[in-house]
Design a protein around this nucleic acid. Structure first.
Length: 206
DNA sequence: AAAATGATCAAG
DNA sequence: TTGATCATTTTA
């Protein structure tokens, strides 16, 4: 399969890219080279220096936010709530700190592996994680796909993690709404910069 | 009966 | 944000 080219990430229309990311296949091979993959079904755009919800608001550069300033096609991982990772795709040119948070994916290849990893994280071994709960949230998908802090700053054109074309959704198949978990962002909390595949079973909220 | 849904709470 | 628990509703 063919990796999405650098230009897909660097062309410079973050909201458009956030929508086009829906239907793309996220591939994270195991150490032994087995493909584990899932289709992106929910995204949120974070628009650089003007967006109060973005880590890079006001051009803030810290150890954590530094990767947001990398060139489009770089992976930005951050740790949240003391226990979960979030997976973001950096877009636009170097030093333009735009990123797209991947909020939910639909399992495609090697679902068995995702199930094992998710169940292993659960405290109660008796409960079996339902397939539709496997990757229906930003923290869950990172566990299922084995994405941890070491993926921060990884190149999406490398061999550790990448995106491929899979499906294309029409504008009529995409829903739009407010982003989640950013109540502190004042007027930006209302911006309709969250996108998801309409009626998809794997989105993070109903 | 089992499974899905919703509300509440604590976790690091 | 998530998982656990508990209560309620839906489904087979």
């Amino acid at each position: 399969m063919k990796k999405l080219p650098r230009e897909f990430y660097t062309r410079g229309d973050t909201l458009q890219i956030a929508k086009e990311l829906l239907g793309k296949l996220l591939v994270v091979p195991t150490e032994t080279g087995e493909r584990v993959s899932a289709m992106i079904v929910e995204t949120e755009a974070y628009l650089g220096v003007t967006d109060k919800a973005a880590h890079s608001y006001g051009n803030r550069r810290t150890k954590r936010t530094e990767t947001m300033f990398a060139v489009g096609g770089t992976v930005y991982i951050f740790f949240i709530y003391g226990m979960y990772f979030q997976f973001n795709v950096v877009v636009d040119a170097k030093d333009v700190p735009h990123a797209i948070l991947i909020r939910a994916v639909e399992p495609v290849e090697n679902i068995e592996m995702m199930r094992r990893r998710r169940n292993a994280k659960s405290k109660n071994p008796a409960v079996k994680t339902l397939d539709k709960n496997l990757t229906s949230g930003p923290g869950k998908l990172c566990i299922a796909l084995g994405i941890g802090g070491s993926f921060n700053n990884e190149n999406l054109l490398g061999d550790r993690i990448w995106l491929e074309d899979l499906k294309t959704f029409l504008a009529s198949e995409i829903s739009t709404g407010k982003r989640i978990g950013i109540d502190y962002a004042e007027e930006f909390a209302e911006k309709p910069w969250r996108f998801w595949v309409k009626d998809n079973q794997f989105i993070s909220r109903k």
